[in-house]
Simulated assay, not measured.
Amino acid sequence: MVSAQLTQRGERGERTRARQRARDWAEIQERMLVPLYEAVYDRLEVGPATSVLGLGCRSGLALLLAAARGAEVAGLEPEAELRELAQDRSLRVLSDVYREIAPPRGAAHTLVTAFEHLSCTADPPALVRDAARLTTRGGHVALATWGPEERCESAAVLDVARRLADPRRSAPYAPFALSAPGALESLIDSAGLRPAGGGRVCCPYAYPDLDTALRGVMSTGVFDPAVEFSGERQVAKEITETLYPWVRTDGSVRMENVFRYVLAERVR
């Protein structure tokens, strides 16, 4: 009986932490990538004639921005807490089951985006193939990842996720794995898509104070394996230490980062 009660308390605690992290993402971290979203939408002239599908759309800010331009939007998000926040924003966001979105006779989206999901998924080629399948002929896929590591001041913070995770993991966190020249283009080619341009976008990570910065970066989910292996206290301690060089005299925190996006067209 005692063991069952402890298990239930642990599960409730995990759910509470998951909900808090999702709120931190929506309230703190999500806005950091707005320049990236807008750059893609401007480049493709997203508007009333566009049907956007966001893969790994999290709490849905990118979809809200597309909807504000008149686009029809939908999303897929595997994390229940983030999906619920997106649904609370009156967005059509379902679990990560592609058959829930794709109609029986083929794709129906003129733009499929992978803004955050690509650098976290265990199988990027499969994600890009799915994106291509869900895109109409003549439509576009937009992929995004971190820019060159030397242009991203958040690199040291992200390295905590690798250092404190279980070293026996078969696929350690590697946020810059797709940042090398040609990496995204190779994914596009293997999915049968045609390159259609791209660019780099400055996306500073800016926070009013150190505590908010810690909550923001931990809300990304990339530190979860490190928390599981090393404990939340240790992970938070080391993240805070890596943030100190970016604390300004007024107590705010700002890290300059560059993100890269590529566009691809489905031609068949």
Rank of each mutant, 00 (worst) to 15 (best):
Asp189Val: 10
Asp189Gly: 10
Asp189Asn: 03
Asp189Gln: 10
Asp189Glu: 15
Ser190Thr: 14
Ser190Phe: 01
Ala191Cys: 06
Ala191Lys: 02
Ala191Arg: 06
Ala191Asn: 03
Gly192Pro: 07
Gly192Glu: 06
Gly192Phe: 09
Gly192Asn: 09
Gly192Ile: 07
Leu193Ile: 09
Leu193Glu: 01
Arg194Leu: 13
Arg194Asp: 10
Arg194Thr: 15
Pro195Trp: 06
Pro195Asp: 02
Pro195Phe: 02
Pro195Val: 09
Ala196Asp: 15
Ala196Thr: 10
Ala196Pro: 06
Gly197Cys: 04
Gly197Tyr: 03
Gly197Gln: 02
Gly197Ala: 05
Gly197Ile: 05
Gly197Asp: 04
Gly198Ser: 07
Gly198Cys: 08
Gly198Phe: 04
Gly199Gln: 10
Gly199Arg: 05
Gly199Leu: 09
Gly199Tyr: 07
Arg200Phe: 13
Val201Tyr: 07
Val201His: 05
Val201Glu: 05
Cys202Ser: 14
Cys202Phe: 07
Cys203Asp: 01
Cys203Thr: 15
Cys203Ala: 14
Cys203Ile: 12
Cys203Phe: 05
Pro204Leu: 04
Pro204Arg: 04
Tyr205Met: 11
Tyr205Cys: 05
Tyr205Glu: 12
Ala206Gly: 04
Ala206Ser: 14
Ala206Ile: 02
Tyr207Lys: 00
Tyr207Gln: 01
Pro208Tyr: 02
Asp209Val: 02
Asp209Gly: 00
Asp209His: 11
Leu210Gln: 05
Leu210Ile: 09
Leu210Arg: 11
Leu210Asp: 00
Leu210Trp: 01
Asp211Val: 13
Thr212Val: 14
Thr212Trp: 00
Thr212Gln: 11
Thr212Pro: 00
Thr212Asn: 00
Ala213His: 02
Ala213Asp: 01
Ala213Ser: 02
Ala213Thr: 02
Ala213Met: 06
Leu214Thr: 07
Leu214Ile: 15
Leu214Asn: 00
Leu214Val: 15
Arg215Met: 11
Gly216Lys: 06
Val217Asn: 03
Val217Trp: 03
Val217Gln: 08
Val217Glu: 13
Met218Trp: 04
Met218Glu: 13
Met218Asp: 04
Ser219Gln: 09
Ser219His: 08
Thr220Pro: 00
Thr220Trp: 07
Gly221Phe: 13
Gly221Tyr: 12
Gly221Ile: 11
Val222Gln: 11
Val222Ile: 15
Val222His: 07
Val222Arg: 05
Phe223Asn: 12
Phe223Leu: 09
Phe223Tyr: 15
Phe223Val: 08
Phe223His: 12
Asp224Asn: 10
Asp224Thr: 14
Asp224His: 08
Asp224Phe: 04
Pro225Gln: 07
Ala226Lys: 09
Ala226Pro: 03
Val227Ala: 10
Glu228Lys: 13
Glu228Cys: 04
Glu228His: 10
